[in-house]
Design a protein around this nucleic acid. Structure first.
Lengths: 193, 193
DNA sequence: GGCGTCGGTAGACACTGTCTACCAGCGCCC
DNA sequence: GGGCGCTGGTAGACAGTGTCTACCGACGCC
């Protein structure tokens, strides 16, 4: 058959990725994913011993997708470090805005600890890149610390904005000024951005 | 009876608060809350038409508790604005650390939109206080914007730290340096703190 | 004193994740 | 070649969930 040449494992993850984009994170039922992949509800168990591990695999796709967009936004990496950090921040917020369900899934804390995929470590290379850029943009500071604070800021903006809390609190109509404020704060007064 | 002089509504919320502290957010089952309150699983429906509304009422307790701690940390409010902001940030992170389950519940986005309690608006007074302090600490800037960015930063640190992601990424052993970094960033170079 | 209403019970329903028994088809080896 | 075991999937049971509905007991009120 045309479907079974790709392993069921991949088809399940594919179905999950489509489902979370179409219906949101709460729709990612084990049985519904199996249904969409055209198999019985017990089949996923061969590949994912538990529901959480399947969700982890789906979230993993999200992290690699985010990393891909980051890489392509950075281009050849010749721009000024501060500008590259700004580009990363913008990509991060755009990803969270355009993939609400997937972003929500990626940061479900019970997923982070499950699966030998070690989902938490998946985001480390991207963080390392950020820390490197921060270190070049602000020599002299503890780059990993500042990068950590900045990452937390981006994450907070992404979440609180998508929930409407920040829109309500700040009264602004889009998160761009918040991103600017955060970048200015962590990267120091406007440099060559 | 000694139990029914307080309305079942309050007893349910009480049971939920205890349960989330003892067993974590995922344990907040409608049926388990009813069990702990000593009633049948259909009883809560008289007061909370849906499970989410009961959870909203429980989370509401969390917000008022947080506001209480903030108020008591600020004291008479005579300290320098920057110091007060720092105190608020510290209280926020401590609350998130000491009440992991409750904090997780408070920021479940599907809760924020449910219930005529309008949970999202509950955090507005506290945010207004923060924005006011930020405005006095940094006159000239858009206080609500900077306060929003700072709030997002605190929220991000609280979440990512409690999940272990920030500890892993920054290599620090406690979130205090992150708080300092964030405060320095948003409030400008160390003032009278 | 009968009646209606309030506050709670009990059970049904559909749905979930997990577990277990089964089994069809295939390759492999003696 | 024929039996065997393994791989990969099916089907059903089970406990638990949230919601809904029928019932009902005690209380207040006219």
């Amino acid at each position: 058959m045309t479907e079974s040449d790709r392993s069921l494992r991949d088809r399940l993850v594919d179905a999950g990725v489509e489902l979370v984009a179409a219906e949101g994170a709460p729709a990612l039922t084990l049985r519904e994913i199996a249904r969409r992949a055209g198999v019985s509800h017990g089949a996923p168990r061969r590949y994912f011993p538990t529901h959480l591990e399947l969700l982890s695999a789906i979230a993993h796709r999200g992290f690699t997708a985010l990393a891909g967009r980051a890489r392509e936004a950075l281009g050849d990496g010749t721009a000024a470090p501060g500008a590259q950090v700004a580009a990363l921040g913008r990509v991060y917020l755009e990803f969270a805005r355009d993939n609400t369900g997937m972003y929500e899934l990626m940061f479900r804390h019970d997923l982070l600890e499950s699966g030998h995929l070690r989902l938490r470590e998946t985001s480390l290379p991207l963080f390392g890149l950020l820390a490197d850029l921060v270190g070049r943009a602000r020599p002299g500071v503890d780059a990993r610390l500042v990068a950590g604070a900045l990452w937390a800021n981006l994450h907070g903006i992404a979440q609180l904005w998508s929930w409407g809390s920040l829109r309500l609190a700040t009264g602004t109509v889009d998160p761009e000024p918040l991103l600017h404020s955060a970048l200015d704060a962590h990267l120091g007064p406007v440099t060559s951005r």
